[in-house]
Design a protein around this nucleic acid. Structure first.
Lengths: 189, 189
DNA sequence: TGTTCTAAGCAACAGATGTTGCATAGCTTA
DNA sequence: TAAGCTATGCAACATCTGTTGCTTAGAACA
């Protein structure tokens, strides 16, 4: 993970922004698997060696890009500055469904490799968020197990939603999904 | 997916076996991410071009290897030739936990990319198995949603189990985990 | 056995990867 | 403004990738 500090050399900010921007537009255009680091740096007008000064490879770049976008989504909904409630959980599920849905429509031909990597990245953040929520309400109790189960359940449901052909209304879907997740968590709150 | 037919040219059988054998021993030795196709073919004493006649890249090889090993595990426990029962579900969870646990101890430095790919591969098989079970008992009802949720829950629990530092006894763990999964499925059976 | 079919070996290819040492541009601070 | 620091550019590298055209070995079958 890269430091997201404020005080960064403007050259660094500029380079990262150019790389990210180029990457995201290429993802939309050609899909992740067919992009080369060369492609990214060409489009970003940045030297290839410079790329490797920032990211170890294109997988690290994907991780960073997805992390960052998902974190923005969470912050936009102010889910990072709250605690566990039934309603906040509902909003979290909504956020994940929404995010995955838009990700899939924004990316050309998302194949298994791409989806697997995205999944790992996002699950980490969901898990951190849920752990934080649970630790706030129950500081003494171990949170690993319920947080893990809930994380997987949420991501699984969101993945199902974002892949389904005949996509039901999001609100309807979340109403159906919510109890399956809540039951595991509310034993601990 | 490669055809697993019986009637194959013995040269093909031999080549695939050599590649698989070499791959699996290299995985144990160096870990997946650092292996090159070159490494695999060198050790297997097979030409690199021949490799590409069988697998599109090393990710396809991983998928094939894991699929095959997991399928053997399922067949060994005769889970592929049965229907839904509480006890068969218990055995399935046990199989997945066991498989992941041994996979992690057999592979050098399993990083996120490796684990993500394995996850995708195994979840496909769990999903097929559960769908089959559910369709047998309830041919009329759509099975996609319960099968998906159960698949994710099972894999999530197995992943948690195989990563936990202080690993509880497997039987104990499965007893705790089983009801969380069963409750979703037994609404439909 | 001999003929046919096809898998495997081989060599070479263009392109991508990840890394290096060095030069230069640009940021920061005094 | 000048000095020092560091991110970027550049060129070259060894290596790996995925592919091709051709040759050779071995399986299948009449």
């Amino acid at each position: 993970m890269l430091p997201t500090e404020e005080k960064l050399d403007p050259r660094v900010k500029r380079t990262r922004a150019l790389i990210l921007q180029s990457f995201e537009s290429l993802i939309a255009e050609k899909g992740f698997e067919t992009i080369s680091v060369q492609d990214v740096t060409d489009k970003a007008q940045v030297n290839r060696a410079t790329f490797y000064a920032h990211f170890s490879d294109k997988y690290a770049l994907l991780d960073y890009s997805i992390s960052q976008k998902f974190m923005q989504e969470i912050e936009k909904r102010m889910l990072n500055t709250c605690h566990y409630t039934h309603d906040n959980l509902r909003n979290l599920i909504l956020a994940v469904c929404d995010f995955l849905f838009h990700l899939h429509s924004d990316c050309a031909q998302p194949h298994q490799q791409f989806e697997s990597l995205v999944e790992g990245t996002i699950k980490k953040q969901i898990f951190n968020l849920l752990s934080h929520w649970l630790e706030q309400t129950q500081p003494k109790v171990p949170t690993e197990i319920p947080a893990t189960v809930a994380t997987w359940a949420i991501y699984g449901l969101a993945s199902l939603y974002s892949h389904s052909k005949k996509r039901p209304a999001l609100d309807q879907f979340v109403d159906d999904a919510l109890p399956l997740v809540a039951v595991n968590l509310e034993q601990f709150t």
